Lab assay of single mutants.
Amino acid sequence: TFELKGKVGKVVKIAEDHYLVESEGDKWIAYSDEKLSLGDRVMVVDVDGLKLKVKRIP
């Protein structure tokens, strides 16, 4: 299986209740415990079905 946990991506869209993150050339629906901005670099900390939980990284 394709393992996304630990992968790095970038926030490419902000929606009302989720983010769109591009990682490894694909776009994924993501959510975070912190507020993210367009262009933020993020790391995948968990995968919930087809949704990614991400956190901001420097």
Rank of each mutant, 00 (worst) to 15 (best):
W28R: 03
L36M: 07
V47L: 13
I29A: 12
L4P: 15
V12K: 06
Y19Q: 02
L52F: 03
R41Y: 12
R41W: 06
P58E: 09
G49T: 07
G6F: 02
V21H: 00
V54P: 00
D40H: 09
S37H: 06
F2G: 15
E22N: 05
D17G: 08
K13M: 12
M43N: 04
D48P: 02
R56F: 09
F2C: 15
S23Y: 02
L20E: 07
G49D: 05
P58L: 12
V47C: 09
E3P: 15
K53E: 06
I57Q: 07
K51S: 13
V45M: 13
R56T: 05
V11F: 00
D33G: 11
R56A: 06
E24Q: 04
K10H: 08
V45T: 10
M43L: 14
V42W: 01
V47G: 03
R56C: 05
K51R: 13
K10T: 06
E34T: 06
V11P: 00
H18L: 12
Y19W: 07
S32K: 12
D26L: 14
K51N: 09
K53P: 00
V44W: 04
A15M: 10
K27P: 04
V42H: 00
I57F: 12
V8W: 04
I29K: 11
A30D: 00
D17P: 12
K55T: 14
V12Y: 09
I29P: 04
V8R: 03
E3W: 04
K27I: 10
V44L: 02
L52R: 01
P58A: 10
E24P: 03
I14E: 09
E22D: 05
D48G: 03
L20W: 08
R41H: 09
K10N: 07
R41P: 12
R41M: 11
V8M: 08
V21S: 01
G6L: 01
V21I: 09
R56E: 03
V8P: 11
D26E: 09
G6S: 01
V11N: 00
K5W: 15
F2W: 03
A30P: 00
K53F: 14
V45D: 10
G49I: 08
V8Y: 04
K27S: 10
V12T: 09
L36F: 05
V44S: 02
E16Q: 10
V8S: 04
L38A: 10
V45H: 05
A30I: 02
V21Y: 05
K27N: 08
T1E: 15
S23Q: 05
L38F: 12
F2M: 15
A15G: 08
R56I: 06
S37A: 12
V12W: 11
D46A: 04
I14C: 11
E3T: 01
K51D: 04
W28E: 01
V54Y: 01
I57T: 08
G6Y: 02
R41Q: 10
K55N: 13
G25T: 04
D33I: 13
G9S: 02
V21G: 01
E24K: 02
P58N: 08
P58R: 07
K55R: 13
M43T: 10
K7H: 05
D26G: 10
L50E: 04
G9P: 01
R41K: 06
K5D: 15
W28P: 00
R56V: 04
S32E: 00
L52S: 02
D33Q: 12
K7I: 03
I14Y: 09
D40K: 02
L4N: 13
S32W: 01
K10A: 09
L20H: 12
Y19E: 01
